[in-house]
Design a binder for these strands. Structure first.
Length: 578
DNA sequence: CGGACAAGCTGA
DNA sequence: CAGCTTGTCCGG
């Protein structure tokens, strides 16, 4: 143990400067303070929180010229995680305090308990994962219906594992399965202190990648292709990339698990793919339905393949409609009747809390449903409302929209309802016999560089919902581009080929991971990009600019040098998801 | 972010 | 030129 520190360099929390200031450590606090401690400080006459990130820095003022620390509030991230947070702030051009907060417990932790490791090493294990671990990690391509548990057990054999999953529900389910096997676990962020003390398996969503852990044998990122692993808000940090950096810093392997790995995952990594036979049995039947020369559809939105499926009353069919357009329709929450105008029958909007108004003729009425006198309305996308009628007519059985307000269960009547929803429905409904993707083209052709990646992610999600072909699972994908290579590869159950198509395209266009992009938005965008060094290339006009660099490190360093406007808005999104 | 202070604006 | 508003700077 070195001499007691006299000075603490503290990074400020919340608003204010994203800067660190030095404080004198009073004698009575020196015993309990550590690097990462969460402390209270005085700054400019205000009491604020912060993190100790360094002791006795060489460029500090003499201790007697500094203000004293007020108190130590509790435990925070350790040195490894602090380094990871600082690296992330640079990589995604965000505030350090934001990442430090992600690395801190949700509630004050006064003391960290003792480790609870078990000596169990459960079976069965995954030989492919064991091989990857021996080669310092890589990509495990696992068909969507395959269980990840054997892979996790392979990791557990090596020591404590950090498992990052996309959704909160994924985390809770996995945690209970792991606990049932007699292996000790901690679920983040709630069990931050338990994880910091030491358990066999730490599970959480993307922020868990910043968890403080006393020792670690490996890291797993499950469903690496899932968009939820990336923050939608700026800074647009991605848990996969942070996990990779954490693995590098700790010298431990990272296992990326996905049925359809992204180009970022495949980049410079060893890949373990399933046998052709396991691949085929691990996916549902995938049918590509041609919409381009199929006239059986009224309105041209349903192919004969889909209509046939809809007419089979024993099959639970879930139709996914892609998000398109932003205008909204109001539908009664109780009877689902659309809010239409009594005079001109056009749709009505809701200018304030208790009034409906007609956009066409201007007439107004209270928020009441004409059909059932219900007083509560929900928003529908115009496409969805019309589509429900079309689908019900084609199916000869009722169709119902599933959104945030409706129960996701199938009706138990003589004929099962057809369910309809936007992509979010794939997270709400847990099982179906068939998923119909009504318009994959709007996904494949979307004007974003991740369009292909997101298409594959959607298909993987849908595949998991219907299950294996042997169990009746079927995935019908409607398209007007029957020859699209991505769709052809998927219909042949060759996700390896599909991910390779996507990877090669990114490489050719120098898009991530073969280059780095930042999207700069806001009134300060023009001035900001002008102030950047020559190491980056800038494009775009007005309040929306793009910055490109050869790699994320160069981009991060350049963005850190940019002049942020004193006033006006600026959003910097590095390698954004959307 | 928000307090401090300096530079600009207004009205008698 | 006092009294107020607006802008810019900076914090240990």
């Amino acid at each position: 143990m070195t001499a007691r520190p006299n000075i603490a360099r503290v990074l400020c929390d919340r608003s204010g400067p994203d800067r660190a200031f030095d404080y004198r450590i009073p004698d009575e606090l020196s015993a309990e303070i550590t690097i990462g401690s969460i402390v209270r400080i005085d700054l400019h006459g205000r009491k604020i929180g912060g993190w100790v990130k360094e002791f006795d820095p060489s460029d500090a003022l003499p201790a007697d010229e500094l203000l004293p620390l007020r108190r130590v509030s509790g435990s925070g991230p350790d040195e490894l995680v602090i380094g990871l947070a600082e690296w992330s702030a640079q990589r995604w051009a965000g505030r350090r305090s934001q990442f430090f907060r992600a690395a801190s417990p949700p509630r004050v932790v006064r003391s960290i308990g003792t480790a609870t490791y078990s000596t169990l090493s459960p079976e069965p294990r995954s030989p492919a994962t064991t091989r990857l671990l021996a080669r310092n990690g890589g990509v495990l391509r696992l068909p969507p219906t395959s269980d990840v548990l054997p892979s996790l057990w392979s990791c557990v054999e090596r020591g404590p594992v950090l498992v990052v999953v996309p959704g909160v529900d994924d985390a809770t389910i996995l945690k209970s399965r792991v606990a049932r096997a007699g292996v000790t676990t901690a679920l983040l962020p709630h069990e931050w202190a338990r994880a910091a003390a030491g358990v066999d398996v730490v599970i959480g969503t993307r922020t868990a990648v910043f968890a403080r852990l006393p020792e670690l044998g490996s890291i797993m990122v499950i469903d690496e292709h899932d968009e939820r692993l990336q923050s939608e808000a700026s800074p647009t940090w991605h848990a996969r990339e942070v996990a990779a950096e954490r693995g590098r810093r700790s010298g431990i392997p990272l296992i990326l698990v996905s049925a359809t790995p992204t180009p970022e995952a495949l980049h410079e990594r060893v890949i373990e793919a399933p046998s052709r036979e396991r691949e085929i049995t691990g996916w549902p039947e995938i049918v590509i339905a041609d919409l381009s020369n199929d006239s059986s559809a009224p309105g041209g939105r349903l192919s004969s393949t889909v209509i046939e499926e809809l007419r089979n009353p024993s099959r639970r069919v879930l139709c996914v409609v892609n998000r398109k357009g932003t205008s909204k329709l109001l539908a009664c929450r109780s009877c689902r009747e659309l809010a239409t105008c009594e005079r001109c029958e056009s749709v009505m909007s809701q200018p304030d809390d208790d009034l409906l108004s007609c956009a066409k003729c201007g007439s107004e009425r209270p928020m009441t449903c004409l059909n059932c006198h219900g007083m509560s309305f929900s928003n529908l996308r115009p496409g969805t409302a019309r589509l429900v009628k079309e689908l019900a007519a084609a199916a000869g059985r009722p169709a119902r929209v599933v959104d945030a307000d409706t129960e996701p269960d199938w009706s138990s009547g003589p004929a099962v309802e057809v369910l309809v929803g936007t992509e979010a429905v794939l997270h709400r409904v847990t099982h179906a016999d068939t998923v119909v993707v009504l318009d994959i083209d709007s996904e494949v052709l979307a004007p974003r560089f991740r369009a292909g990646e997101q298409t594959l992610s959607l298909l993987t999600r849908a595949a998991r919902l219907v299950g294996r072909k042997a169990d009746g699972g079927r995935l019908i994908v409607q398209t007007r581009q029957i020859d699209h290579p991505l769709l052809v590869a998927m219909s042949r159950i060759a996700p390896g080929d599909a991910t390779e198509i996507e990877r090669a395209q990114r490489e050719q266009l120098k898009l991530p991971p073969y280059g780095a992009i930042a999207v700069i938005e806001g009134t300060g965008a023009a001035d900001f990009v002008q102030s950047l060094p020559d190491s980056v290339r800038v494009g775009g006009t007005g309040d929306r600019r793009q910055v490109r660099a050869t790699n994320p490190e160069v981009l991060g360093r350049a963005l850190a040098l940019g002049q942020r406007p004193a006033k006006g808005r600026l959003r910097v999104a590095v390698n954004p998801g959307r």
